[in-house]
């Protein structure tokens, strides 16, 4: 076919692009097993070694920050999922109401808002609130979590919104028609249908929070240093091999998670396709 010609061009572009995406990650993983403190000099005699992994786990500062980050990320993801789901539900299913445009604007703007602005504005809010009502007394886990929820709920809203928009709202109407009250309709019909979106929204919010350094720098207090903040201050001074080890662990966890879920989803899809085929065949 004549159109094949351009296809190899885009295929090459695709593979080069993927190489561009993965070469830095792979080099980071490789050097995490390097014995030398100079990250880029491969010490062939003593490598590979797990030395940096040992140092990483012995580093109390990093371990403490990691635990703090996990806690913040989990709380953020949970809060963002609740608020984002409600916002998505309101925007897709509640029809027109006064102030809808503002809500929809406030849910999409954080997607592109430069982080420095978000961070600055939230810190100024917390300072103003402290003056006004005496809360928050100090900037700590709470303020970081609030800030993280605010910028990550936008992503949850988008995911939930597009999932909900994919479902006919006659499903909910049918449930109402069959005598279920609105609250029941939400828990029996709407919620089960958007569970996949809620799950991926939770993971997305977790990642965004786990990853954030800029906003945290603004709203964190002295006693609450998250993992990205520790890493950031470390790598500003140059490469450090235990960060390589940390990165490798994180990549491994994420890759395992993504691959497992992809395989699972693929199986589900195949089973579904087979069942649908059988249903059609049975009817002939």
């Amino acid at each position: 076919m004549r159109l094949k010609g351009r296809h190899w061009f885009s295929k090459t572009g695709l593979w080069l692009g993927l190489a561009f995406l993965y070469v830095p990650i792979i080099s980071m993983i490789v050097f995490s097993f390097n014995n030398s403190r100079l990250v880029t000099v491969w010490d062939a005699a003593n490598s590979p070694t797990l030395k940096w992994y040992g140092e990483l786990f012995a580093n109390d500062q990093i371990m403490g920050a990691a635990w703090l980050s996990i806690r913040i990320a989990a709380m953020t993801a949970t809060g963002a999922v609740i608020l984002g789901t409600l916002a998505g539900l309101v925007l897709v299913r509640f029809g027109p109401f006064r102030g809808r445009a503002l809500l929809s604007g406030m849910t999409t703007a954080p997607l592109v808002m430069p982080e420095v602005i978000t961070g600055l504005s939230l810190l100024l809010l917390f300072v103003a609130l402290q003056q006004l009502i005496g809360w928050p007394q100090s900037r700590d886990v709470t303020t970081i979590t609030i800030a993280h929820i605010t910028f990550s709920m936008a992503y949850v809203t988008i995911v939930v919104q597009s999932r909900l928009a994919g479902f006919d709202n006659s499903l909910e109407e049918a449930a109402l028609d069959l005598g279920a009250k609105p609250g029941k309709v939400f828990f029996r019909i709407t919620l089960p249908l958007i569970v996949p979106a809620i799950l991926s929204g939770w993971l997305l919010a977790f990642t965004l929070s786990w990853d954030d350094v800029v906003v945290s720098q603004f709203v964190a207090g002295p006693g609450s240093t998250t993992l990205p903040m520790v890493i950031f201050s470390k790598v500003r001074l140059g490469v450090s091999p235990d960060v390589n080890a940390l990165a490798t662990i994180m990549v491994l966890i994420v890759a395992t998670g993504v691959v497992v879920s992809a395989i699972w989803m693929r199986r589900q899809e195949r089973r579904r396709a087979r069942e649908m085929q059988m249903a059609v065949a049975a009817n002939k």
């Binding site: 995406l21 830095p24 980071m28 993971l203 890493i231 790598v235 960060v243 390589n244 990165a247 992809a262």
Partner: peptide, 20 residues
């Protein structure tokens, strides 16, 4: 999946990888 996978890993660490 290959495109999105790096996105799930830390942004900070991916930038850091380029220093090396």
């Amino acid at each position: 999946m290959l495109i999105i996978l790096p996105f799930w890993t830390s942004f900070l660490l991916r930038v850091y990888a380029w220093i090396g």
